[in-house]
């Protein structure tokens, strides 16, 4: 049986993706923000898929130390179950904000959760993923286009535009995937970014003002999260790992010209420093 890890699994795209993988016979290690959310999502999935193999981990991945803690818990769980490898890691947890807000580490929240959390968790779980020639999938977005990474002010402190911060974090998802491929494709590990499209989820519910109006408008024409969920399973079900980086509705999609190996290396260096880790 193949084991996968998915973050942000208690609602929206993450919940439907976890359900789909569980129904397809994968063992799903699901990470959610709180115990209450996890319990709710667990009974939700079990109600449609009673045979689901699920384990839940509740941490706030925005905080660096909680990423470390959940990585430790997952490793302990794998050791207990005698599992030595992971087939896939889906870095899906994300948020949208209206204002400049910091995590307990003093990092801007969208950058910290949408990018740094996945960057760090992937590093922690890398030995397990390399064993099985694993696949790492980021929930990116078409909003990653039309923007460059603000290298000199990555937390956007000079003048915080919340939508710019969101777009930048989604560009970082693709750069991270690109950098992973550059480093580990020869070792059998492949990374991807998925554009879920416009989806009706809870994202943007904790915003107010203009940003709140933006997200409400955006989501009005959204599809059900079951549609993008298929894309994640599609990538994992291919017997040979697909070679293309960016996907939309199970099809290869063009991505921003900013997604270069040079920018990916730059992002790796910056993120390694901020997370206190090293990919080597």
């Amino acid at each position: 049986m193949k084991t996968i890890v998915i973050t942000g699994a208690t609602s929206g795209i993450g919940l439907e993706t976890a359900r789909l993988f569980a129904a397809a016979g994968y063992r799903v290690l699901a990470v959610g923000h709180s115990t209450a959310n996890c319990e709710k999502a667990n009974s939700d999935i079990k109600s449609t898929c009673p045979e689901a193999m699920l384990a839940w981990f509740a941490e706030d991945l925005m905080q660096q130390r909680e990423v470390e803690r959940v990585a430790g818990e997952i490793k302990a769980f794998l050791a207990k179950e005698g599992v030595e490898s992971l087939y896939a890691l889906i870095n899906n947890a994300g948020c949208a904000r209206s204002w400049y807000m910091t995590t307990e580490d003093g990092y801007e929240q969208q950058f910290a959760l949408n990018h740094l959390a996945g960057f760090k968790l992937t590093c922690e779980l890398l030995p397990y993923l390399l064993k099985e020639g694993g696949r790492v999938i980021m929930t990116s977005s078409e909003s990653h286009t039309g923007i460059k990474v603000h290298w000199n002010d990555v937390m956007l402190r000079r003048r915080y535009n919340p939508l710019t911060a969101y777009k930048q974090s989604k560009l970082c998802n693709l750069l991270f995937a690109k950098g992973l491929n550059d480093r580990y494709a020869s070792a059998g590990l492949h990374a991807y970014g998925v554009d879920p499209g416009l989806v009706k989820t809870d994202i943007g519910n904790k915003t107010a003002g203009i940003v709140d109006i933006f997200w409400k408008f955006r989501k009005r024409h959204g599809v059900s999260p079951t549609i993008p969920a298929k894309n994640y399973l599609f990538i994992c079900e291919q017997p040979e790992p697909p070679q293309w980086l960016y996907w939309y509705l199970c099809r290869e999609q063009k991505y921003s010209r900013q997604v270069t190996s040079e920018n990916a290396t730059r992002l790796f260096e910056l993120s390694e420093k901020l997370c206190g880790i090293s990919y080597k």
């Binding site: 660096q64 990092y107 901020l274």
Partner: peptide, 10 residues
């Protein structure tokens, strides 16, 4: 503690 680490890293 996390703030100290975060500030030093940044």
């Amino acid at each position: 503690a996390p703030l100290k680490t975060g500030l030093e890293r940044q």
